[in-house]
């Protein structure tokens, strides 16, 4: 089964300047268990597409299936399959993180006992135990990112979508997060990653697609991107600069 199937996805915005195309007729399939990288400049349409997949944005035309569930018709099953770590923190900054993650488990219908066990496991995994009684705003940038990742994993989703998960954190914390992500991939999770750090995409992903002006302009395996010893960054720049 494919973890994600996007067909003819089109998303337009209307603002004061008129209609803007954010995602332009995108077709994309991500296989179950794949570590998939989505690259592109700011404004290329990556975050908009992720927002369409996760239900934050509506889309104009097209269809999206997550683990075989249509995200509009069967939105509850589709959302059960997704864990999202968004680029911008969407956390109640005043709430203690232990309470926040418990509520999120509740949104996903987990029982109190399951929520307690899972939150404890994740806080231990991400070294967050010492902060569980702290509000989100009291955490450093790196621990905020860890909390958001833990929250995305709370309901043990099949597909993990990470939008710039290492933005703004130091090298040590970034490497620790890479290790967690590699472990999750080994456990069979499908991971969709967007990042501006190309070395991280090169290290982690099996397959990489590049978006530009709302379109997918390349969709290749890591081997194809790095053919002949090329760095992913060089291939990426050649692709985006040639447009």
């Amino acid at each position: 089964m494919n973890a994600l199937e996007i067909q003819n996805l089109h998303k337009t915005y209307t603002d004061k300047k008129g209609e803007k195309i954010a995602v332009d007729d995108v077709n994309l399939t991500v296989k179950q268990g794949e570590f998939f990288g989505l690259l592109g400049q700011n404004g290329a349409g990556k975050s908009t597409m992720i927002s369409c997949i996760t239900g934050i944005n509506q889309f104009t035309t097209g269809s999206i299936l997550v683990m075989g569930h249509d995200i509009e018709v069967d939105y509850q099953q589709a959302r059960l399959a997704i864990g999202l770590s968004p680029q911008d923190f969407n956390v109640d900054v005043f709430a203690k993180i232990e309470k926040s993650i418990d509520l999120v488990g509740g949104y996903f219908g987990m029982s109190k006992a399951d929520r307690n066990t899972r939150a404890q496991e994740l806080f231990e995994l991400f070294d967050l135990v010492q902060f569980k009684d702290k509000p989100f705003q009291a955490l450093s940038g790196g621990f905020k990112r860890r909390y958001v990742l833990a929250r995305a994993l709370m309901h043990d989703p099949d597909v993990l979508i990470l939008d710039e998960p290492t933005a703004g954190i130091d090298v040590e914390q970034r490497r620790a997060l890479w290790k967690y992500l590699q472990e999750l991939h080994k456990q069979g999770k499908t991971i969709i990653l967007t990042s501006h750090y190309l070395e991280e995409v090169e290290l982690l992903c099996d397959r990489v697609a590049v978006m530009n002006h709302g379109k997918i302009i390349a969709d290749l395996t890591k081997a194809e991107f790095t053919k002949g010893g090329a760095k992913l960054e060089d291939t990426y720049l050649k692709l985006t600069e040639s447009i």
Partner: peptide, 8 residues
């Protein structure tokens, strides 16, 4: 609100 909108 997106915490809720992305949940079931």
């Amino acid at each position: 609100i997106t915490e809720m909108l992305t949940s079931p």
